[in-house]
Design a binder for these strands. Structure first.
Lengths: 254, 254
DNA sequence: TGAAGGGATTTGTGATCACTTAATTGCAGC
DNA sequence: GCTGCAATTAAGTGATCACAAATCCCTTCA
């Protein structure tokens, strides 16, 4: 990350898409060493899984990109073993695609799958937001406003990756307040599935014409208006996904 | 060991809950040998995962029951390795609970979790059913009727395990027709989460007072009536879950 | 009789290895 | 120059091992 990555146009190979920006051979798998006494030294698998999840949600890995055990292991400075389990977990969430021969890749988008994702988001996310509403206080409203300001800034300077990360943070700052053990993982699974595609489309068409409904959502939360919050989330999903959906024909099944 | 293990009534250890009913040392992990030429010899992990999924959906494993890698591996006649990956996948779907120390167990039910599962089912399943409606023909209706007859029979003779299996088969015979890549896995994940608890409740209160709305659903499918199908599924979920929900206080967090 | 301590066992984790199969590449033949 | 085949490489899979941590059980002492 020190030096910005050279633009690579090859679709199926290239430099490391995952990893928080540190060098490829940085000892990410650090369990020993002077970790904080409060931190319980999470296992390597969790770190791999987290890195992969973020890479998918941010869209740092392109759809169709193949993910190899040994490659990812070397990239993260560990053995293939934790990667295997992490990949297995992501595959169970349909965030990664395992072919019949066992090869693992980021799934490509299809128009029907896109429609299903839109359906799932429209069903789940407004409901989760409404469930979260009673738990959202003034501090949360301020935090959401700050996030939305950052989002506007990222849209202004065309930083797609920052937008992806911040948009996810905004939505899940709302959803997580519900403390949902069942619904939230379902929403996460859906986001993992459309993240890479969303990123690819934004990378091509840009984020300039993107209109979100975050301010309406913030206002609804501040007013404790469940109906307005539901409507804002619905509108946000509908408009955002419509913009992305237009990219399917151009870039979807490539 | 060859003989059946003595029946143990302790909640946290005992005989094999998983496995298709064959002997504990049946060579489930058969990759060599004269397999059919068409079958591509699915890997052991898939078999382990399938066995676990069925055990959870049927409710053959009790909530709170701990699942150990080596134990399950020996039970299925394989090494711990495929079990590890299968468990990791199930854990990613929230079908299994991994404690901070890494111990794996079937999650226990809580009232709030139960409410969320009800929410998720009410949101997803009617929608999936309606999406499947255009793909359901007369042959499917006959198949559903046959399944429902079997369900009635299982209710009559109090065969809880058969009921669990058949009820799942009935619902997913409808849902799977939609060919959904996104929504169906979400529904599956939810079923995996309440299967063990449902089974436990039915095992205690019996299935006698159970009323389903399968016949209305079949009629709605036959009439191609989306609204009626949606209503039937909603009613089926609501009534079934209400009966189960009454068991939370008695047996939920034990 | 109860609790606390310690040792033995269990269990998950990460690494490595051997094996099989699927891609890929290179080469020969047409 | 293109096609088809074969050798090579790459990659997933299952097994085994070493290790650390957690759990369990048994002993011992108050």
């Amino acid at each position: 990350m020190a030096a910005r990555r050279a633009a690579s146009t090859t679709a199926d190979a290239g430099d490391n898409p995952v990893g928080p920006g540190s060098g490829p051979h940085a000892p990410t798998a650090r369990t020993s060493g002077p970790a904080g006494p409060g931190t319980r030294a999470p296992n390597i698998r969790s770190q791999v899984s987290l890195a992969l999840r973020e890479a998918l949600i941010i869209g740092r890995i392109q759809p169709g990109r193949s993910v190899t055990l040994r490659g990812l292991a070397e990239e993260l400075g560990t053995s293939p073993m934790p990667v295997r389990e992490a990949i297995r977990g992501l595959a169970a969430e349909n965030a990664l695609d395992v072919s019949v021969s066992g090869r693992v890749a980021v799934p490509r988008m299809t128009d029907r799958k896109f429609g299903e994702i839109l359906d799932a988001r429209m069903l789940l996310e407004p409901q989760v937001a409404v469930l979260a509403l009673p738990f959202l206080g003034k501090a949360d409203v301020r935090r959401l406003q700050a996030l939305d300001d950052e989002i506007d800034a990222s849209l202004g300077n065309g930083d797609v990756e920052a937008y992806m990360r911040l948009n996810h943070a905004f939505h899940f700052a709302i959803y997580e307040a519900a403390g949902s053990e069942v619904l939230l993982p379902l929403v996460e699974s859906v986001w993992l599935q459309f993240g890479p595609f969303m990123r690819m489309v934004y990378g091509r068409v840009g984020t300039r014409m993107l209109v979100d409904h975050h301010k309406q959502a913030i206002a609804a939360i501040g007013a404790r208006d469940a109906a307005a919050l539901r409507a804002a989330i619905r509108a946000d999903i509908a408009e955002g996904m419509q913009l992305i959906g237009e990219g399917i024909g151009a870039a979807g099944t490539t």
